[in-house]
Design a protein around this nucleic acid. Sequence first.
DNA 1: TAATTGTTTAACAAAATTGTTAAAAGTGTC
DNA 2: GACACTTTTAACAATTTTGTTAAACAATTA
Lengths: 206, 206
Amino acid sequence: MSKTDLRSSEELILNAAIKVFTRKGYAGARMEEIAKEAGINRALLHYYFRDKETMFNLIFETKFKEFFTGLFGAFQSDAPFFEKIKRIIDHEITVLSKHPDLARFVIMEIAQQPDRLIQFGQKLGLNPRMMLENFQKEIQQNVLEGKIRPIDGRQLLMNIISICIYPFVAKSIIKTMMQMDENTFLDLMGKRKKDAYEFIINAITP
Amino acid sequence: MSKTDLRSSEELILNAAIKVFTRKGYAGARMEEIAKEAGINRALLHYYFRDKETMFNLIFETKFKEFFTGLFGAFQSDAPFFEKIKRIIDHEITVLSKHPDLARFVIMEIAQQPDRLIQFGQKLGLNPRMMLENFQKEIQQNVLEGKIRPIDGRQLLMNIISICIYPFVAKSIIKTMMQMDENTFLDLMGKRKKDAYEFIINAITP
DNA sequence: TAATTGTTTAACAAAATTGTTAAAAGTGTC
DNA sequence: GACACTTTTAACAATTTTGTTAAACAATTA
């Protein structure tokens, strides 16, 4: 393959590895399948990347960042409270619609090895604790000012996140049960940006 | 080991297999680890159960049933609408609090092989489609009667399920970020039965 | 053209994992 | 004690998966 090809082999391999790892997880992924998906042979995988674990860590770091960074950004924006909620919802649903296996992959691999959350969080300079504390303070503030009903900040936080992320994690179940194809599902998720926002706002306005 | 022991080896193996499979998934589970967890040797695994796949299918069927049957029951109870929602929430949070890996396991394995949902659903005589259709009709009815705000039944359904299940799927992330130990988490889930109910009711009452 | 880099092939080595077998010993039952 | 069933041991076979190597070829660059 010449250098004038649209994508270098390295890139082809990386994209293939992303597909296979995010679909199957570390334990279920096969180097052979990655090579096949990339349209090259197994030897070349090891020419560009040391081994399976190295490859996985590279991809996990990318996906970890993709999953958390934007979300943290939305949480930390200085928009008014309701607007901030809107941004969180829009951002999550937009990102997860584009990356079908992202949420499931990250959640599963952290469940397999919880210390990855600390490890990669530090590596990327994310501070989940401070972020959550600030958001909870903001909730408390709004409760005190009577702008929203009294509610445990942790529960509201979990509700917002759950409503955004769960449908993508359980996508195959939802699609089967509701008899939707991929496009119908994505369409429903598009509408969900508005629906979820209204649902949450109705739930918390006094 | 004598027959007077509290648990038979078969039972020990099964419980060990449940632990390992639900924690690691099919691909990540190791027969060796199951034997170790059961306190017996690998040969005995094959004495009682043909092979890994047979074992897995047995356990998956059990867990599939555990995950869906009670939930379907709650959906199909003939309680009034709000009471039904309350039962669904209570049931889900109670079951998932007792079986920490249940939701993640079932969701992940169905994501790996979506036809399992149809296959095991039929085997257990569950009819997800009819159940969902009935619940959505009930939502429509309540909307028409003005008892709840206008809402897409599919979205409300997803909201209820998401709020109940997601915290258990992402448990390790939530625990780390909110700096909770296991007991604190379970305590929060206990309170969540009431909190989630109020949140949802507030969201839908006009 | 020579040198460098990228790529394929094919064979193979090494490791991990699963599954099998036979022999012996333990257990309870008749 | 004879019998059937359970369990352990230990070795090993089979398979799958991962990783390595050397040789040849292709493409690019100096």
